[in-house]
Amino acid sequence: MNVIELNNLTKMYGKARGITEVSFHVEEGEIFGFIGPNGAGKSTTIRLLLSLIYPTSGSATIFGKDVVKHAPEIKKEIGYLPSEVFYYDNMKVIDLLKYSASFYKKDCAKKIKELAEMMELDLTRKIDDLSLGNKKKVGIVQGLLHEPKLIILDEPTSGLDPLMQQRFFELLENENQKGATILFSSHILSEVQRLCDRVAIIKEGKIVQVEKIRTLKENNYKKFKIETVSKVPDELFSRLPGVNQLEVKGKTISFIFRGNINHIMQKIAGIEIANLWVEEPDLEEIFMHFYQREA
């Protein structure tokens, strides 16, 4: 079953682009990454899903129900962590969490305590006095306290120190094992690489690609680094199809290659080399390719 489904979802802000004909789906039990540079349309897409804003055309469903028509019902089972956390002034953490819990017809007291302990969050402090990272923790507890079936996270790790990030990821993995589906938006690829099953890459409001993390990595991208004995002309590799992110520094040439490995090997065999490295690129390097392609 698909928990989230987007069909040609489009949002225009007047004439300015929001997102254009975005389609993808998130399956039940999946951790789905939503990747793109800042301003690509990640938050717009998420706000459309939460019906904070409404689509210009196209549609989206969550749990098989239209997000605009059935918004209040759908939201019973959604936990959302916004990228920037703002809360009512003059409230203590526990007051805010209780207020949040009061919207769900469940007893959330135990879960609040459990989450706060795990994230080392002091419930008696005033929210105004909290640091950015601690506010983020309030957001995390607030988003998870009703044990939602779908967790939507918009750039969730900003402001969290590495240790807390680690805890938070464990928490998410835990929730996922208990059956929660997770939509995880980020521009930091390593965290997505670690956590997600599949990713959608968005760029300038359009989906560039939806792929399994594993496929992305296995897609025969190779990272080459060659040290030559004498300087060779730049054009030697730049003309070759499948070569990306070519960098030449003196006698060192590096690039990412996707395609038939024999072609590149023949090319290399033609020059005298001092040293050669062929490595698996990490996701970041693969994605740079998507980011830059049209730049």
């Binding site: 019906s51 904070l52 019973k76 959604i78 703002f86 809360y87 949040s100 919207f103």
Partner: peptide, 17 residues
């Protein structure tokens, strides 16, 4: 104004309510 709409309107309540 205070950006708490991202809190309140993500709860299971309709805007009318």
């Amino acid at each position: 104004r205070d950006k708490t709409a991202e809190f309140l309107l993500v709860k299971p309540v309709s805007r009318a309510k």
